[in-house]
Write a protein that binds this DNA or RNA. Sequence first.
DNA 1: CGCTGTGTTGAAGGATGTCAATTACCGTGG
DNA 2: CCACGGTAATTGACATCCTTCAACACAGCG
Lengths: 245, 245
Amino acid sequence: MSTATPPLRLEPFKVACSNCNLRELCLPVGMSNDQLLKLDTLVSTRRTVQRGDTLFRSGEAFQSLYAVRTGFFKTCVASEDGRDQVTGFQMAGELLGLDGIGTERHTCDAVALEDSQVCIIPFHQLEDLSREVSDLQRQFHRIMSREIVRDHGVMLLLGSMRAEERLAAFLLNLTQRLQSRGFSASELILRMTREEIGSYLGLKLETVSRTFSKFQDEGFLEVKQRQIRILDQDGLQRLVNGANC
Amino acid sequence: MSTATPPLRLEPFKVACSNCNLRELCLPVGMSNDQLLKLDTLVSTRRTVQRGDTLFRSGEAFQSLYAVRTGFFKTCVASEDGRDQVTGFQMAGELLGLDGIGTERHTCDAVALEDSQVCIIPFHQLEDLSREVSDLQRQFHRIMSREIVRDHGVMLLLGSMRAEERLAAFLLNLTQRLQSRGFSASELILRMTREEIGSYLGLKLETVSRTFSKFQDEGFLEVKQRQIRILDQDGLQRLVNGANC
DNA sequence: CGCTGTGTTGAAGGATGTCAATTACCGTGG
DNA sequence: CCACGGTAATTGACATCCTTCAACACAGCG
C-alpha cells in the first residue's frame, strides 16, 4: 500500500513475446524463435492501466518503452500555456514512449482511453539485446522510422487539408489499422471523444461533430454517437485525395 | 559522363568525423576518439548538392543517411493529389533520410535551399557499427527520438496555434538552432521563400508575408525581404506562449 | 430519476484563404 | 554599367471555412 505513488498493477506471469498473438505487428517482427526467447527474458512484465489513467506523463523519467497489448491509448503534448495537442492514438501492437529516448524524460502524456494492458520493455536492456540481435535492431529502427513517417503524414494533414479531408483520412487510417488486427473494415467504435479527435486533427469538437453529420447526410457513414459504420469507403478515399475540388 | 543518372559530385577526400567541427552536434556526440576513428571508416564520402537540386526523392531506394555538413535543406512530403507539405528545414549537423529506414524507400524529397554539402552515412554499415559501439547506438537512438519529439512540436503548432504564434515559434526555433551553431541570435537570412515557410507552418504565403509585416509594425522584427533582425525576442516568446489572449 | 459528461445543431463573427495588382530584387545579357 | 525579365514579396479587397457562443439532446451512472 505504501510503496509506489501511482498504484501500478504488475503482472509478472505468462508474458512471452514468443507466444504473443501480436508478434506479427509488434517488436518481434522478423525475429526467429531463438531470438524471441531472448526477447522474452527482457519483456517479462505487464501493466494494467484503467481507462482514464496515465501510463506516463510528460517530465517523468524515461525507463521503458511500452507495447500496447490490449486497449487503446492517446498521447498528447502540452505547450507552456496549457494548450494541448493529441499527437496520436495507439492500439494493440503499437509502441509507446519513443519520445522519451532523446532526453531520458517522457515528453508527452500517454492516457488509456479504455482499460488496457501494456508490456513493459526496459529500454536499456532493449538496447543491449539489439546489439546482439541484429533482427531486433532492424525492427526497432523500422518502428522509429515509421513513427517519423506517420508524423509527417499528420503534418501534411494538419498543414494542408480541410476539415472533411482530415476526418476522412483519420477514419480511413483507423479502420485500416483495425482491419490489420482482424476487425471489421466497416464498423468501428470510437474510443475517443469528439474533442480528442478534434485535438488530433486541429479542429474544434463542434467542427468534428458537424463533419460527422455531414458525412452521414451524404451517405458516407452511419453515425450513432461513437459507433461508426462506413458505407462508402471509396467515397471517403476520394475526399482525402481532394477529388471534390 | 555516361555513368550515374543524376550527376553526383562525390568527394572521397578529407572526410573525417573525428576531425569535424560539427561533431558536437551530429552523430559523433558522446563518442570517444577511438570510436570516432571507427566511424571515420564508415563516413568516408561527401556529396555536393547545388541549390535547388534534390539530395533524394520520395520513392527512391534508401541506402544512406546524410548529415548536413554545410548549407541548408528542406524536406517535403506529397500527397497523391499533388499537395505538398514542407516537413522540416535542416542545417549543419542535422541528419536527413531517417524516414527511409522503415520501408527501405525514401518517403520525402530533400531539396537544397543553398549550395550544400552532405556526408554520406551508409545505413547498414551504421547499423553494423552501432552494434559494436554502444555510444554510437545511443546517439543514433537519441537523434531519432528527438526527431519524433520535434515532429510532435510541429503538430502542436499546426494543430493549435494561430498564424502569429506559428511564425513567432518558427523564427525562435530557427534562431536558436543558428545560435547553437555560432551565429547571431538576432540576425538571420532566411534561406526559404515565403511559400516554403507557409507550407511548413500550414499557412498561405500571403499570410506569412502579412504576419512578417505585422511583426515589423509592432516592433518585434526588422524585415527586409529575407533578411530578418529580431528586435524583441521576449515579445516573440510571449506571443508563442499565448500571452496576448 | 436526476446529474454530468458528451454530442448535436444553429447563428454570428473572425481568422485565414483567394484573387489580383503592384513593387522589389536578382541574375542575365546587352 | 544599365536595362530587362522573371521570380519573390507585399498589400488590398473580398470570400470562405472554421470557430465561438449558446441552447438543447442524449446516454451512462450514481
